[in-house]
Design a protein around this nucleic acid. Structure first.
Length: 434
RNA sequence: GACCCGUUCGUCUAACGGUUAGGACUCCAGAUUUUCAUUCUGGCAAUAGGGGUUCGAUUCCCCUACGGGUUGCCA
């Protein structure tokens, strides 16, 4: 029997990290076993569905690199893949239940008659869990068809998994208690149930349940802040799953290679923005300088900075200095434009050294007298000027950095000198010395 | 309330019933870089509590506490 997994979001809001991770685990499992990954849209809640939400789900998955084999835009042998178009299937299976006398009418709605017995599920992550359906007060017969003729989640979910021949259902732990209901439905329908794996939920840094509006909740916010997809995929994979080794930087292919449901944890995990940012930095480091510059380009343009000519070279100078692409404009703005801000804290630090002003003025003069201008020559001149005034080179390097860039950190000072050129260096030094 | 799942450094996690309980993020300290960052080295920091079983328990069992989930004509 071939592996077939599915991601079945309802288009009622943007794609959030919990959903993205569910999609990722289903994707990894399918790819690892050479199976199929199906995208099914559970759009039965007409009141809350929106077209924007549909698009957000597709674009979020595309961004993450979770390509599906069947569903929206891909076709497939088990369509349609939108629940809103599958009513005929539901009607057909509902008739089966009615013929078997497993449903009864109640106030115009139809309830499914549970078998009153203990139901045991063998979850691939949680192990054996038994719910006793002899306790009717705890497990009342559930409505599967509303009085308006539409069907509820439990029923359509089961029918679709059955019709689409889903072999493994990997979903959030919030569905654990639903599973015995689904198992009973499969049994009543006379069909074998898929294997289930319930993965723990994702919590906020403070331990509360992560929901809409929380930081880091919307996948769409990640690219806006300058996260790249491989880093986000890597991060959410590590939330609740362990490679069982000390390695932790993984590409999608490596995750596919190493993923297994047995290594999924049972305890809910908290979302840590710091570690996510660190992972982003690690993945940024793996990019070629050209790829890094290209990835950062939109952020720099959005900041209103010119990206012609020297931009790619300039951007490459900060590749190992930023954690998020959104930090790039701030890091290189002073190299692309003469219009930049001074960091008060950095300026204050320079003012702490009374000799700095004279040293900077002297350096400007020496720069003008320097023969050939090059990054190395200029850098050496800083040392010479400092020594000439009886100071250590390090004492002049920081003030020079602040005078030229307005900041305490940034590209290598030699790179700054070379990229800026003699005239701009002299002008900025003199302006700052005043 | 009832039912279910869970609990190892602040966070993510590793550890055939036998380890000085390991790694990573954060933080701190050194080294390197004539500068910031990177990098490297070192440091701080954990088995929720109480009972068992066992020669021996982070690991198995029970109780308590805490956290999460489910209890809809939502999905």
């Amino acid at each position: 029997m071939s592996v077939r997994t599915r991601f079945a979001p309802s288009p009622t809001g943007y794609l959030h990290v919990g959903g993205a991770r569910t999609a990722l685990f289903n994707y990894l499992f399918a790819r690892k076993h050479g199976g199929s990954f199906v995208l099914r849209v559970e759009d039965t809640d007409q009141a809350r569905n929106t077209e924007e939400a549909r698009e957000a789900i597709f674009s979020g998955m595309n961004w993450l690199g979770l390509d599906w084999d069947e569903g929206e835009g891909m076709g497939g042998d088990f369509g349609p893949y939108n629940q809103s178009e599958r009513k005929a299937n539901y009607d057909r299976w509902f008739e089966v239940l009615r013929e078997k006398d497993r449903v009864y009418e109640d106030d115009g709605a139809w309830r499914f008659r549970f078998e009153r017995k203990p139901v045991t599920m063998n979850d691939l992550v949680c192990g054996e869990v038994t719910i006793d359906y002899r306790d009717e007060s705890n497990t009342p017969d559930m409505v599967i068809r509303r009085s308006d003729g539409s069907y509820v989640f439990h029923f359509v979910n089961v029918v679709d998994d059955l019709d689409m021949k889903i072999s493994h259902v990997i979903r959030g732990e919030d569905h654990l208690m639903n599973t015995p209901k689904h198992l009973q439905l499969f049994e009543a329908l006379g069909a074998p149930a898929p294997q289930y794996a319930h993965i723990p939920l994702i919590l906020n840094p403070n331990g509360s349940k992560m929901s809409k509006r929380d930081e880091g909740a919307a996948v769409g916010d990640y690219p806006r802040q300058g996260f790249i997809a491989p880093a986000v995929v890597n991060f959410i994979a590590l939330l609740g799953w362990s490679p069982k080794s000390d390695d932790e930087i993984f590409t999608m292919d490596e995750l596919i290679e190493r993923f297994s449901l047995e290594a999924v944890n049972r305890a809910p995990g908290r979302f840590d923005p710091e570690k996510c940012a660190w992972l982003n930095q690690q993945h940024l480091l793996k990019l070629s300088p050209e790829a890094f510059a290209a990835a950062a380009r939109p952020y720099v343009e959005a900041a209103g900075l010119p990206v012609d000519g020297a931009y790619p070279e300039v951007a490459a100078k900060v590749q190992e200095k930023v954690r998020l692409l959104g930090e790039v404009p701030e890091a290189i703005g002073f190299l692309l434009s003469d219009n930049f801000e001074f960091d008060p804290a950095a300026v204050e630090k320079v003012h702490g050294n009374p000799a700095a002003k004279d040293l900077l003025a002297a350096l400007a003069d020496d720069f003008e007298k320097l023969g050939d201008w090059s990054a190395d020559a200029a850098k050496h001149q800083i040392g010479d000027t400092a020594k000439g005034a009886g100071a250590k080179p390090g004492q002049l390097m920081f003030p020079t950095r602040v005078a030229l860039s307005g900041k305490a950190g940034g590209p290598d000072l030699g790179d700054i000198l070379g990229l800026l050129g003699r005239d701009r260096c002299v002008a900025r030094l003199r302006a700052f010395a005043k």
